[in-house]
Nucleic acid binder design. Structure first.
Lengths: 205, 205
DNA sequence: TAGATTGTTAATCGATTAACAATC
DNA sequence: TAGATTGTTAATCGATTAACAATC
């Protein structure tokens, strides 16, 4: 095990491994080799072994990896054994869809609070949660110990709300607004922009 | 200009550059240097110049890049001068949200047809488009000359529908199902899995 | 002209892969 | 034991960066 700095690109692959292992566990497969897993993901077996070796020794020579065990270890490494509370900012069409999305809970996240700045929306319920005034962000973030936020506001409002979030102590932001935002060091940002993914494909068509 | 094979990672950054240039053009900025742009995106100026150099010479020494011109060149390179018709498969909560998403049109895509296999949904309208039977996929894809599809079906159905799409001649797939799918060479796949992005951040929290 | 910035080369840096001893 | 597969090392491959001549 090398306990130095693990490359971001390696950390970025762990959730992909985890997703595949969770699937295999559901399928009832109890053991998987790096070769099996690699074939499934389009990744070389050497890369999988090297990636995992950053965190420890999880396999058995001649056999491979115990699916459930490796899955749990990856959850531990990624710190998603429990359930992270997440703040959702923006309750328009996109934000509402995010609020109803079923995919977060099984992966270790729950929308703990929903915010908007439209008086017409504040107080209403979305996916069984009350929409709160953005002004309440600092209080709620503190009270619920929220460290991650999902930004689903219009592009024009994105940087402003991100600044607010950072001030509230948010350390991870998942940004659905199709715009680059800037954050201070130590704050993680990930982007979801489906159009960008489509544009990555057209070059090859 | 090097007209050999352009690395995928370079092609992948072009939509990011394009997004920033579109934004700058809207802001009324007419010229941008690689340094400006890089600072905005958190990318080195050298990398931006190197990336662009794969496709031609677009800048002017001492000045930088004309924003509108470079934006249009990137659109040309990415082949998004026109509007690509896209098939949307799956009309549940997620698919419906995708159908209503406003972000595709300005980036060069339009949902040209919506499909589901639920008789209760077929014939209804979603975002002003009729939901069609998946059985009609081959005909519609051919008639509308569709080459890109968005998959928003349950994980359990994803690989099956992807196989159908590939048989229909689809060459690019944007997959919202949280599962790895396999496709033959020559078919592009991109993934949208918000939970994976969240999991990439928790490691650092 | 002086200052700024490009496009490109060469050097550096980092990631992937091949290979294999260890061992289940 | 024989076969298979891990974890790790060293080699390879590719991507990023520094530097600078060219030139606007």
């Amino acid at each position: 095990m090398e306990s130095n700095k693990v490359p971001d690109i390696v950390v970025g692959r762990l959730p992909i491994y985890l997703r595949a292992l969770t699937y295999l566990a559901e399928e009832g497969q109890s053991v998987v080799s790096s070769q099996d897993l690699g074939k499934r993901l389009g990744i070389s077996s050497a890369q999988i072994r090297k990636d995992l070796s950053h965190f420890g020794e999880f396999g058995k020579q001649g056999t491979g990896y115990e699916v459930g065990y490796l899955r749990d270890q990856l959850k531990r490494i990624l710190r998603i054994e429990g359930r992270w509370p997440v703040a959702l900012i923006g309750c328009g069409a996109l934000g509402t869809a995010v609020a109803y999305y079923q995919g977060f809970a099984p992966k270790g996240f729950e929308i703990a609070a929903v915010f908007d700045n439209d008086p017409g929306k504040i107080g209403q319920r979305v996916s069984d949660k009350p929409v709160m005034d953005v002004a309440e962000l600092p209080r709620v973030v503190r009270e619920k110990n929220i460290r991650i936020a999902i930004v689903a506001v219009p592009s024009t409002a994105a940087q402003r709300i991100v600044n607010t979030l950072v001030d509230c102590g948010i350390k991870g932001i998942l940004n659905y607004a199709p715009i680059n935002i800037s954050v201070p060091p130590g704050v993680q940002v990930q982007y979801i922009d489906p159009a960008v993914h489509l544009q990555r494909m057209t070059y090859y068509l």
